[in-house]
Design a protein around this nucleic acid. Structure first.
Lengths: 221, 221
DNA sequence: ACAATATTCCAAAGAACATTGGAGGAGCTG
DNA sequence: CAGCTCCTCCAATGTTCTTTGGAATATTGT
C-alpha cells in the first residue's frame, strides 16, 4: 500500500483520460458525439479530418473509455460512453472559459458579435408552454432526430432561408443548437432578424441541457 | 463567423486545458494543490519529481490557467486557480473510475484491500455533532492548517502510532484524508484497528468536500 | 555589493503523438 | 465468391512533450 509504483499506476489511469482530452480535434469529435451517435466517415467530414486521422482519434477516445462503438452492418457508430463524459467535457470548457482569457476572444471570433438577444432554458420552457414562442432547432436533421427539446421544430440552418414560410410570423422564434459554443443558433437569429422576424437564441444548447438532466426527446427510429 | 480557423482556435483553447490534464505527474500536482498552496520544492518532493521537472510541469499548469502563483519572499506558492479546477479534476477521476476497468484495479493496488469500514460525510457529521465519534485528520500538518473539517483533530499518519494516547479509547475514530484515492485514511484505520481501536474511514476526503461546497475550516495563519 | 535560497530558463536527447496514403479486414449484396 | 463500402492497421514523417543538469534570475539577509 502507498508505494510509488502503485500510485503512479493509478494516476496514469487518470492521465489516460486527460490525454484523450488533450487534442482540439478529439474535443471536436466529443462535441459532435454529444449530439448523438455518428459514423466514422460522417465525423471525419464534420470535423474536417482525413478518414484515417479521424479513425485514429476515435481509437484513442475508445481506448480512454470516453466513447463506445456499435456495429451496424458495414458501418460503425460511435457514441459517448455516458452522460458523465458529456459533463466532463462541459466542465472542461467552462474551466477554459473562466481561467483562460483567450477563450472568450476565440469564442467571439467564432460566434460573431454578441448582437443577438438570448434567453436561458428555464424561461424558454415557460414561454414555450404558454405558447408565446416557437422553439426552433437549427442543428442538422440527424442530430434533431437523435434527441431534441420536446415541442421543438426542426429546420437546419442551411435550409432556414428557404423554409421561412413554415414559421408563424406573429410569434417570436427561439433558436437553439448544440451548445454554448455552437455558431448555428447565433447565425440563425441573425438570419431571422434580417428577415424582419422577432428572434432570440437560447444561451445554452443540447449539450448543457443533457448534462443538466433536462428531458431530451429522441425521435422514434 | 463559423469558419474553420476560428473554430479550430476555439477548440485549441479547450484543448490547452485538456493537455494540461494529460500527464500523471501534473495530475498528482493538482491533487496535492487541492489540499492547499505549496511551494515548488515542496511539491517536487511530495510528487517524487526533480526540481526543474516539477517547475516545468507547474509552468504548464500555469499556462493552462489551472493554477495561480503568489510570491512570498524568495519562495513561490502555487495554488489551484479555483474551486472549478478541483471539480474538473474530481470529475476526471470519476470518469476514469467509471469507464476504465483498470482504474479500479490500480485503486485497489494502491489503497490496499477494502478491509476497512467506511462512512459517508453526511453520517460522519451527524455522529460528530452527537459527540459519538472523534473525527481525525491524518494528512500532513500543513494540509490540516490550510483547511479541514470543523472539529477535526489533526494527527498526521506518520505520527499516529506515537500519539495514540491523544485519542479517547471509548469513542470510535473516523479518519479522513485527501480524497477518495488517498491512502492515508486507509492506512490509519488499519493501524488503529491493529491497536484494538474502533475505527473507520470517511469514503471521501477534503477534495470531494470542497467540491461539494462543504464548510472547510482554515486555520488562522 | 555578496552570498544564500528558491525558482525559472536553456539545450539536448529520447519518447510519444499526429498526420498521410495505402494496404488489409469485415461485412453486405448480387 | 466478386465487388462494394466502411473502417482499421501500418509505416514513415515531422512535431511536440518529458526529463536532465547546469546556467541564469529574483529576492533576502549580511
Amino acid at each position: 500500500m502507498g508505494d510509488r509504483a502503485a500510485k503512479d499506476a493509478l494516476f496514469a489511469e487518470f492521465a489516460a483520460v486527460g490525454k484523450a482530452l488533450g487534442s482540439p480535434k478529439r474535443l471536436e469529435l466529443l462535441d459532435l458525439l454529444a449530439q448523438g451517435p455518428r459514423s466514422v466517415e460522417d465525423l471525419a467530414n464534420a470535423a474536417d479530418l482525413g478518414l484515417s486521422t479521424c479513425s485514429a482519434h476515435l481509437q484513442r477516445l475508445l481506448a480512454a473509455g470516453l466513447v463506445a462503438t456499435r456495429r451496424d452492418g458495414t458501418r460503425i457508430w460511435y457514441s459517448l460512453a455516458g452522460e458523465d463524459v458529456a459533463a466532463l467535457f462541459a466542465n472542461l470548457r467552462s474551466v477554459a472559459q473562466r481561467h483562460r482569457p483567450h477563450t472568450e476572444q476565440a469564442r467571439r471570433a467564432y460566434l460573431g458579435p454578441d448582437d443577438t438577444k438570448q434567453v436561458d432554458v428555464a424561461e424558454l420552457l415557460r414561454w414555450a408552454e404558454a405558447g408565446d414562442v416557437v422553439v426552433l432547432d437549427v442543428r442538422p436533421a440527424p442530430e434533431y432526430a437523435a434527441g431534441h427539446l420536446p415541442g421543438a421544430v426542426s429546420i437546419p440552418l442551411d435550409e432556414l432561408e428557404d423554409r421561412l414560410i413554415e414559421l408563424p410570423e406573429d410569434r417570436e422564434v427561439i433558436a437553439y443548437c448544440r451548445g454554448a459554443y455552437c455558431a448555428l443558433a447565433h447565425d440563425a437569429v441573425r438570419l431571422l432578424t434580417a428577415h424582419g422576424r422577432q428572434a432570440r437564441r437560447a444561451t445554452d444548447g443540447v449539450l448543457e441541457w443533457r448534462v443538466a438532466g433536462l428531458p431530451v426527446q429522441a425521435q422514434a427510429a
